[in-house]
Amino acid sequence: MAAPSKRKEETTILKKQIFEYHRSDEETKSIPYLEKYLTISPNELYFKLVYAKALLYRTDLEVPGNDENIESRINKTRAIQSNYNKASKIFQENVLHLEKVRPRDPNLGRWYYLWAFSEWFSDNKEKSIKLFQKAVKLDYRLTECYYNIAALYESLGQWKDAELFWRKYEKAEKELEEEE
């Protein structure tokens, strides 16, 4: 009988630490706690999403410098890319699951928004555009989605589409200001 109570105590301590780091915008420091928590409770949908967010906002991976040798730059770039790919995969599995089990979840748009960034940083620009569109459809207050879509279209050389989304961004921002 002691084992379940010990497990509950351990998960409570881990949750407290994870939330403390997230409240103070130190997601990177929460990663080992999230990994341990998910080992104990692997089916916790919310904590999987929090883990993906922590990977997305991760600050402990070294950025390659121009003065480094090519092998070092490649290794650092691969580590960063692998991290974004992992975040993207976790978001994909769990945001889609969340949408099925809680289609009216008030944070669903925000999770799509974060997933879109992980795809963008994984160099999946077209997928990122679609996810930003879904995010703003779910939560109209995420007007920066239009801004990001416009920037993505510009990076793809699709100037007419970019211009359309710059206008949508300006209009949505104006409407939000009027609403407040």
Rank of each mutant, 00 (worst) to 15 (best):
165 F>A: 04
153 Y>C: 10
143 T>R: 14
70 I>T: 02
167 R>N: 15
94 N>T: 03
178 E>Q: 14
3 A>F: 05
50 V>D: 05
130 K>M: 15
30 S>L: 00
43 N>S: 08
63 V>Y: 00
130 K>E: 15
168 K>D: 05
125 K>N: 11
4 P>R: 10
54 A>S: 07
130 K>Y: 13
74 I>P: 01
62 E>I: 03
1 M>I: 08
9 E>D: 05
176 L>H: 12
165 F>N: 14
96 L>D: 08
73 R>K: 14
51 Y>Q: 01
156 L>V: 09
145 C>K: 07
133 Q>R: 11
102 R>T: 13
116 A>R: 14
48 K>T: 07
140 Y>V: 14
172 A>G: 03
51 Y>G: 06
120 W>N: 13
137 K>D: 13
56 L>K: 01
45 L>R: 06
29 K>D: 04
92 Q>Y: 10
176 L>S: 13
68 E>H: 03
175 E>A: 12
154 E>R: 15
20 E>A: 11
126 E>R: 12
126 E>M: 15
57 Y>H: 10
44 E>Y: 12
89 K>A: 12
47 F>R: 02
126 E>L: 15
151 A>S: 15
179 E>V: 13
133 Q>C: 08
22 H>C: 11
57 Y>V: 09
116 A>P: 15
168 K>F: 08
15 K>S: 07
9 E>A: 06
163 E>Q: 15
48 K>I: 08
33 Y>I: 02
50 V>T: 12
36 K>G: 02
120 W>Q: 11
31 I>S: 08
108 L>H: 04
24 S>K: 13
57 Y>E: 14
56 L>C: 11
41 S>F: 02
118 S>M: 03
22 H>G: 00
169 Y>N: 08
24 S>D: 14
24 S>C: 00
48 K>W: 12
3 A>Y: 09
118 S>G: 04
68 E>N: 02
169 Y>S: 02
133 Q>D: 11
180 E>A: 15
134 K>L: 15
117 F>M: 09
106 P>I: 11
104 R>P: 01
102 R>W: 15
43 N>A: 03
83 N>V: 01
133 Q>H: 09
11 T>A: 06
152 L>Y: 07
31 I>F: 03
